[in-house]
């Protein structure tokens, strides 16, 4: 299994949410490599340095982040053909229709609202992981 197929990139300015999400992902896929980023800029910088084989198999991003919103990050990712095939999931507190529409328009594979318990989070993680072959 190549590196690319095992790494999952998480972008969220809230470290606790990152911790919870990583736990949920690892409870389903213990072998996954989870990388944390705190804003969109870091994600773009990281991806630019990646070789094709190092690209992640899944990107999960928050909507509300400093400097660059999730929707803006999606637009930037859409500009590079190398990232086209990577599934991009938004996981946000906001359930505002405007946010959801904008993210889907900008290239999000799907949009989820952050759940209130671990079981739901695990369920969501499973759903998101199902689109990539780990």
């Amino acid at each position: 299994m190549s590196q690319r197929n095992r790494s999952i990139l998480l972008a969220d300015d809230d470290p606790e949410d990152l911790e919870l999400l990583e736990e949920a992902i690892l409870s389903i896929e213990p072998g996954a490599i989870v990388k944390h980023f705190y804003n969109g800029r870091e994600v773009i910088d990281f991806l630019r340095e990646c070789s094709d084989s190092e690209l992640p198999c899944l990107i999960i991003l928050d909507y509300n982040m400093p400097q660059m919103t999730g929707a803006e990050l999606l637009t930037s990712l859409g500009d590079d053909n190398r990232y086209k095939t990577i599934p991009k999931m938004v996981l946000s507190t906001s359930n505002a229709e405007a946010h959801i529409k904008l993210c889907l328009k900008n290239g999000a594979t799907d949009y989820f609202v952050k759940p209130f318990d671990m079981k739901e989070l695990q369920k969501l993680a499973g759903k998101m992981l199902s689109v990539c072959n780990l």
């Binding site: 606790e16 919870l20 736990e23 507190t93 906001s94 952050k114 759940p115 209130f116 318990d117 671990m118 079981k119 989070l121």
Partner: peptide, 20 residues
């Protein structure tokens, strides 16, 4: 109310995690 949801979600999720 929007911002209140954020810490509340943490309370619920972490107490849930604690319980599990």
């Amino acid at each position: 109310s929007h911002d209140l949801q954020e810490p509340l979600r943490k309370i619920r999720t972490f107490s849930d995690r604690l319980f599990i």
